[in-house]
Design a protein around this nucleic acid. Structure first.
Lengths: 159, 159
DNA sequence: GGGAAATGTTTTAGGGTTAAATAGTTTAAA
DNA sequence: TTTAAACTATTTAACCCTAAAACATTTCCC
């Protein structure tokens, strides 16, 4: 009989759809802003920057498969990104001694210094873009999101 | 002298970078899960589904520019997506009488029924994927994120 | 009329996926 | 031990999505 329910006016499922739309739109807005700045100020791309960032933490380099897993993109995709970075002399491919199937990718000195330079500016951009969030608010959202990505990645298709 | 600061151990800027990484990884995990399911179960793509969703709310159709603005993708991009949808007979292009520059795109009956079918299942997927969030938690994150995308989109490059 | 703005397509370049092809490594059976 | 099968690593090919820039056409408005 009640014309429309008052509390929980929105069913949880609709509310989650709203949440997903917000999440996606926010992430896309930030991402596209960062892409634009990387392009204009450093003539580079977000995926290429992500690869440099991954490699910067591993002095011994990473194999293609390690990179692909860490960045959560397909192996075929990494090949193309590395091709372009190699052409720009920012990374190099090296065959490891112990496994002739694999290829190890490492930063060149040029790649390392270029990454350091961009990373500093990049952190500043993110800081400004998310300046709405103080420490506590960041923590709150992080807690809410934490684990969700992982849970989805290894369970997505089940249940 | 203090070996490491205790409260606010993480500066706000590092915390925001963490927040951004969480946001991006979560959105990507969900998105890739949805893409995969759309591909496997309906042989379609997320951008094409987004176009159908946009058109489903406008019986009179939308112009290419309206679509491009609403979906926040480039105009050149919309051309290709519509080309494929037209090839599948899900939408059709129609020249409006009053403006010979413009093209109006509308759902075909086939497109409308296919959208309705996918939309229902899609909502269920999102509901499951975000089942960690009850109504209150959804609301909390939505409030935190709300307006951020908009604020970034019209102000990103300033200040 | 004529310049400026708007609409849509094409082009160019990069990013992303899956599936198939190659090549090397490991396992285990014969 | 030899040999086949199974598994792992990478690349390639086909397809789609994405943005930016150049272009043609049309409309707007002075």
């Amino acid at each position: 009989m009640g014309a429309r329910p008052k509390a929980a006016a929105r069913p949880a499922s609709k509310q989650r759809l709203r949440l997903w739309v917000r999440l996606l739109r926010t992430a896309r807005a930030i991402e596209s802003e960062l892409r634009e700045r990387l392009r204009v100020e450093f003539a580079t791309t977000l995926p290429q920057f992500d690869v440099l960032a991954a490699l910067a933490r591993k002095d011994d380099g990473m194999t293609m498969t390690e990179l692909s897993r860490f960045l959560m993109v397909s192996n075929g995709n990494v090949t193309g990104i590395i091709d372009r970075l190699v052409a720009d002399r920012l990374v190099l491919r090296k065959a490891p001694a112990d496994d002739r199937r694999a290829i190890v990718v490492r930063l060149t000195p040029k790649g390392a210094s270029q990454f350091a330079q961009i990373a500093k500016v990049h952190e500043g951009w993110v800081d400004k873009l998310l300046s709405d969030f103080d420490h506590a608010e960041s923590e709150a959202v992080i807690l809410h999101l934490d684990g969700l990505a992982t849970r989805i990645r290894n369970g997505g298709l089940r249940a």
